[in-house]
């Protein structure tokens, strides 16, 4: 017997087509579904009901960590571990340490951003049913897809297929897991 499908996949020709379709799918109450687009479609996150990204928190954490560790390093090396007078300046002062702290803060904030982005997307994820579909080539070129997963409580093969066709989805097919 055929395995349980991953879900249903439908193709849309235009950005506005997928946008309006997404609004309908969202209002139908689906939770486990996705739009696949070749570029970030302006406003689609709202049409899908996706919340604002939380990546900034990772960036902030990285920045604070970097800034404070540079300050801590300069304090420990200059005022604790090996005190040495250079240029008549104090052993530790936040003033000349700021450039280093800013740079390290920037570096760690950037690393935090990238790690946060990967973490929130679940990357690396080299296997995915959508990637296996031959529709991924046009979807990363000029077509748009909507995928509704079978694990969604509202998923019903026939009804969901009818819904996708009604909102303009073309070539609605089952997507194997």
């Amino acid at each position: 017997m055929a395995a349980q499908p991953y879900g249903l996949i439908a193709t849309f020709e235009s950005a506005s087509g997928v946008y309006h379709a997404a609004e309908t799918v969202r209002d139908a109450g689906f939770k486990h579904w996705d739009c696949i687009t070749p570029f970030p479609v302006h406003g689609l996150d709202r049409a899908m009901g996706v919340k604002r990204s939380v990546v900034p928190r990772f960036a902030l954490a990285g920045g604070v960590l970097g800034f404070s560790s540079a300050m801590g390093l300069a304090f420990f090396t200059g005022a604790v571990d090996y005190k040495i007078i250079v240029g008549g300046k104090p052993f530790f002062s936040p003033i000349p340490t700021t450039p280093i702290a800013v740079e390290l803060g920037i570096l760690c904030a950037a690393i935090g951003t990238v790690l946060g982005f990967f973490f929130m997307c679940g990357f690396p994820m080299h296997y995915h049913p959508v990637l296996k579909s031959d529709r991924i080539v046009p979807a990363l070129d000029d077509k748009f897809l909507i995928v509704i997963e079978a694990r969604d409580p509202k998923f019903n093969l026939a009804q969901t297929k009818a819904l996708l066709e009604k909102i303009g989805g073309q070539d609605v097919k089952e997507l194997e897991a």
Binding site: D34, P40, V41, L44, S53, C121, P124, H126, I136
Partner: peptide, 11 residues
């Protein structure tokens, strides 16, 4: 990294 153009990823 397994990019698939998911809008949840685009966000």
């Amino acid at each position: 990294m397994g990019w698939r153009g998911s809008n949840r990823h685009w966000v």
